[in-house]
Amino acid sequence: MKTFDLSLYLVLEHSLCLTHSMVETTMAAIAGGATMVQLRDKKAGTEGLIRVGRELMDVMAGTSVPLIVNDDIDAAIAIGADGLHVGQDDMPSAAARDRLGRDKIIGLSIEDEDVARKVDRTVVDYVGIGPVFATPTKPDHKPAIGFDGLAELVKIAGLPSVAIGGLKIDHVNAVLQSGADGLAVVSAICGQPDPEAATAKIADAIKVFRAQIA
């Protein structure tokens, strides 16, 4: 059975994980409260992703935090990852489902209303919505949608959703108020002097918000 929590979704960025490797950053983030981890490295190639991904799967075993691979389905299968995240220019989600089977998690990037209305809810498990803000970690992104756009796409997609794009701890309340289930962060954790402490601060902000509306 697929179970996952989108509350605090770490997207690994190799270029930022210099002082702390991607594996070190991941374990620190999980200790701090990260609930999902995505391995994203467009420059590594399939073999590079497999090498890091297998190491991540080993150290993440027993944590209950899923490892999602961005875009590269061959790497995801070889790693034995928990799922795959695809964008609009990547493999179609239905084709990914055919190869991965029903037990793996599939996420899909949503950038506008047209795409949100066409999501196949029988195939996709969650959507990543954004970019909320412009971000240097993904220079080829579509125009920023802001929090109003985020709220609209959350409603249209009708699936568990995680916001992405330039998000920091200061944005926790606005993201959750939009109806999204969580936020995906990159530089707010990757490259921070203390990734565990940085993650814990965001995780605590999420808990405080949810306690206030409970």
Rank of each mutant, 00 (worst) to 15 (best):
I79Q: 02
L67H: 04
R51A: 15
A44S: 07
G130K: 08
G32N: 12
T26D: 06
K43F: 11
G33Y: 08
D74M: 10
D120R: 09
D58F: 15
I30S: 11
V123C: 08
R117Y: 10
E13W: 15
V123N: 07
D72E: 04
G128S: 08
S93L: 09
D71N: 09
M36V: 13
F133K: 14
R40S: 02
D103C: 08
A29T: 00
L16N: 02
D74I: 12
R117T: 10
V65K: 07
L39A: 00
E24P: 09
T135G: 06
V69Y: 04
V59W: 11
V86Y: 00
R40L: 02
A29V: 01
D72G: 02
T137G: 09
D112C: 01
V86D: 03
I105G: 00
K42S: 04
D72N: 06
M60S: 05
D74P: 07
S109Y: 03
Q88D: 04
E113K: 10
I129L: 05
E13N: 13
P92E: 05
V123R: 06
M91H: 09
A94F: 10
K138M: 07
G130I: 08
R102T: 11
D112R: 09
L10C: 04
E24H: 13
M57W: 10
L12T: 09
L84P: 00
D82N: 12
L67E: 05
H20R: 15
L12R: 02
D120M: 05
T122D: 15
R99E: 12
S64V: 13
A28P: 08
V69M: 05
L18E: 14
S64H: 15
K104N: 05
E111W: 15
D58C: 13
D103N: 14
L100I: 01
K42R: 05
A31S: 14
P136T: 02
V37L: 01
M60I: 13
